[in-house]
Design a protein around this nucleic acid. Structure first.
Lengths: 218, 218
DNA sequence: CGGAGTATAGTAAGCACTCACTTACCAGGA
DNA sequence: TCCTGGTAAGTGAGTGCTTACTATACTCCG
């Protein structure tokens, strides 16, 4: 009886009994997707396997078929974030061949846009740092420091070429990233999606403007 | 059975059983102090009443004599932080009568020093924002936005006087606070107490220098 | 004595994680 | 075409532990 043959053709999810059967890899990816959302919202400790399961429409046991511990699931999320092709590599390729002001505009736009598009990354980052996950180092190194280093080198060479003043390039890089990233962080910190909204382009212009002018030789 | 009568007669404190007796207010303040540390370390959800009690050398029940719910304890912490006299009022009084470059130096020094002295505040702030505590608004408003506003007004007047370029003063204020505050936040985010350490004075000089030069009229 | 301060010993609910079991699906022989 | 067994995918009902929070009795001091 109860042949579920109908499911195949129709996409209706009215039957609450069993979820759509999935291949292992599909399911695994789905779990990671749901878990990302919840870890970003509630942190590692705050997110529960129960809710992840519920939101994925499966039982908790399925999670443990794919990930032997909650921590493994977290690790999988970080891996997927660090190796995903939409990340730093994209930025670095965008920067290829660019010079002068445009470099800074691209970096600033990238950071702002990236965060607006997907605030979960920043939240994951902040949580992982606060919770002192040992895993957070991986996170930090691949997504945090890498291009701070790039910027530092870039500024260093501009100073050597005489285009910029002799400010400590590491500090200068931090100053620039700080202006831009703090703008995004503050939207989370002050949960103020609205309290301070300017067109993204205007924000970028102002920051790049202040920074480049500030670094200009007299 | 197990009559603990032995304790009664002797006054020796070799028995680790009972803590020093305290007055209600003393005990309350002590609990808040310990709890602040743990909430800052682990967040609201992560911190447990059990550990707070253990670290204060008392039983959980004592906590609940003073605070009817865990949330009340959290609220007490925030109150104590917001009304504490070492906060914004101190900064604003330091700024009184100051002008020009010095204003920015004072603000930057204040932020850096404040955080170095007590990083738990920044952690509390970040946690309360991430965990979407309804209480965080109080936190934010009294300690976050207030002097962002002050800075904005100050910059506005400098622009009107013709000392600075006509950049959106709100954006300029954010840029400056961003540079400075991000420096502190990054020490938590990248848990890099060491990876990037410059003398505080140098950091302040560099940031103020870049910012003021960037805002100068041509 | 009375009451503030404290401990012991709970409670019910929630947590990560497990296990014995059921279902859906596919391959291949009749 | 239908039957059948192997297996991956999924489950419900746990386990033992931890959580926030409580009921109640004991101890000290004014």
């Amino acid at each position: 009886m109860k042949r579920l043959s109908s499911r195949q053709g129709t996409k209706q999810k009215k039957a609450p009994s069993r979820p759509a059967r999935m291949s292992g890899e599909e399911r695994k990816a789905q779990i990671v997707r749901v878990a990302t959302e919840l870890f970003a919202r509630d942190g590692f400790k705050g997110a529960t396997t129960r809710e992840i399961a519920r939101k994925a429409g499966i039982s908790e046991a399925v999670i443990y078929k794919h990930f032997s511990r909650k921590e493994d699931l977290y690790k999988a999320i970080i891996d997927s974030r660090c190796t995903n092709p939409g990340g730093e590599p994209r930025l670095l390729s965008m920067l290829k061949g660019k010079e002068g002001r445009e470099v800074f505009v691209i970096i600033a736009s990238y950071l702002l846009e990236e965060h607006r598009r997907d605030s979960s990354f920043l939240r994951l980052l902040m949580y992982s740092a606060l919770e002192q996950q040992s895993l957070s180092e991986l996170f930090i190194n691949t997504r945090g420091l890498e291009f701070l280093g790039f910027l530092e080198t870039h500024i260093q060479s501009l100073i050597e070429k005489g285009c910029m003043r002799g400010v400590d390039p590491a500090l200068a890089a931090r100053a620039f990233i700080g202006m831009v990233e703090h703008y995004s962080i503050a939207q989370e910190l002050y949960n103020a999606k609205s309290f301070f909204s300017r067109p993204e382009r205007k924000v970028v212009e102002a920051f790049v403007d202040i920074f480049l002018n500030g670094m200009k030789r007299r």
